[in-house]
Amino acid sequence: MNPDGIENGIVLTDEQKRRRRARSVAIALALGALVLLFYVVTIVKLGPGVLQRPM
């Protein structure tokens, strides 16, 4: 903030903030879905053997 009390740098408009948040939520959901997909695919490809390991 400069001596006149005006904020320096980039200030996003409300619409830009809203869209950025929506994009962030979409990326989070996509990443979550990918984690779930990779987990399920791993279980399917490896089968019950995924739980068997030498003790």
Binding site: I10, L12, Q16, R19, R20, A22, R23, A26
Partner: peptide, 10 residues
């Protein structure tokens, strides 16, 4: 430049 894109745009 700052992105103006919505999820729908993508």
């Amino acid at each position: 430049a700052v992105s103006e894109a919505s999820v729908g745009d993508y």
